[in-house]
Design a protein around this nucleic acid. Structure first.
Lengths: 230, 230
DNA sequence: TCAAAAGTGTTCTTGATACACCCATGC
DNA sequence: GCATGGGTGTATCAAGAACACTTTTGA
């Protein structure tokens, strides 16, 4: 620390960036905005922007999501700070990266603010990204898969009630590989994360499936989330 | 993003703080400095300070360790960004926290810069800490134990060569609980992290122990370290 | 009656844990 | 010869992975 009071030297700028994941036609996708301004004008980038003086980091991330894409995920989790000098060609900018999940169909993203376009892009075929956002996406994806494995977080992408088949399909999309049906169902039953909800549902051909919803243990945040950081 | 060029609004200050762990008389300890200046004058705190415009986050953390305590750990790993408004009573300060390990005996820490005193404190009995540094220590400790479990990181606290008994003792100190000797040795052998090095060593009573050193797979950073951030 | 999805158990492998005795050396 | 730390093997348990058939419904 320096003078014991206010620090007046030039300081790095501070931003937040969010890797927001969702499913589009069963494909795990990230929400990207097309930048309307330099640097990287016209490039795809994660939604994000400068942190205001009076707002928490998580709030800043949520505000940017709302402003640039018009979406409000239920929770977000921090990935870490990215601050290599030169990651922003204008000046020194340190960015705190976050990730979140959203039902892609529920809130249609709307381009606004500094974004000329907003779109879901399958993670399997991302365009070149501005700044070091590709690195952030990789890190976020890693975390997403960890969480998906340990806590059936895919349920966040379904309605209030869902069948085990639906949940399995979503989890497979998140994890990027197929799961064994019997093992999956056993794990779900034994985990205690789900509770049976209402009647069996039958739509289309085939035997009607029982419905489940998330139990209280898994509301609002990924299980295992440390919440250590602001 | 905002104007496409330089951003001139008031911005949060950015600091780094480091939880540096070591062993003191077999006790897992954190290096703390006593603050010479307000706020929290006279309180114990993690070494840390403001990030300069042209330096990477990791560099800043290393520089502060050097300036305030005169120590240079081999590697450091990021924990995350802490940025709740109000965590610093002066003004808005966002801090990126790091952790590291150091042979406590090798480099005697030296008070300097803003620190009026520097000391190792056993994590089992920490004093009240300035800012939100207690939260950072908790998070760092969590990460340390994860890494210790998955990769015998305790070897960093020993010399170039060491015996399995020494390594086990150190790992137990880091993890905070005893390990089974036979299981520990089997895991080490099967892990491939260690290579046998030189002759058996005999000092004091008892059968001489074989010496090992870290294999190439575990040089310079904790295994499983993501290196995703700066 | 057939197409389609739901539902259900067992075996095997792997990694973690628990546990007790003999070995080589210095004093 | 004894105190001290080094060194070794086996049985148990839990979690994950592999694997195939019957049930219920709509069309």
């Amino acid at each position: 620390m320096t003078d014991g009071f206010t620090y007046r030297w030039p300081r790095p700028a501070l931003t937040v960036d969010v890797a927001l994941f969702g499913l589009q036609a069963g494909q795990l996708s990230v929400l990207l905005i097309r930048r309307r301004l330099p640097p990287f004008e016209g490039w795809w980038a994660l939604p994000g922007g400068f942190v205001r003086l009076d707002e928490g980091l998580e709030w800043a991330a949520r505000r940017e999501l709302e402003e640039e894409a018009g979406v409000r995920p239920a929770w977000i989790e921090q990935i870490g700070a990215f601050g290599a000098p030169g990651r922003d060609p204008r000046e020194r900018v340190v960015s705190v990266a976050w990730w979140a999940l959203l039902r892609a169909d529920e809130h249609a993203p709307v381009a606004a603010s500094d974004a000329s376009e907003v779109r879901w892009h399958p993670v399997a075929s991302l365009p070149a990204l501005a700044f070091d956002h590709a690195t952030m996406v990789t890190a976020a994806l890693h975390r997403l898969r960890q969480r998906a494995w340990e806590s059936a977080i895919g349920a966040e992408l379904l309605g209030e009630q869902f069948t085990l088949g639906e949940l399995q399909t979503v989890q497979e999309s998140l994890l990027g590989h197929p799961l064994d049906k019997r093992n999956f169902r056993r794990r779900m039953n034994e985990s205690g994360l789900l509770v049976e909800a209402g009647e069996a549902r039958s739509e289309g051909p085939g035997r009607p499936a029982r419905l489940f919803r998330l139990g209280d243990r898994m509301r609002g945040a990924p299980l295992g989330s440390t919440r250590e950081n602001e």
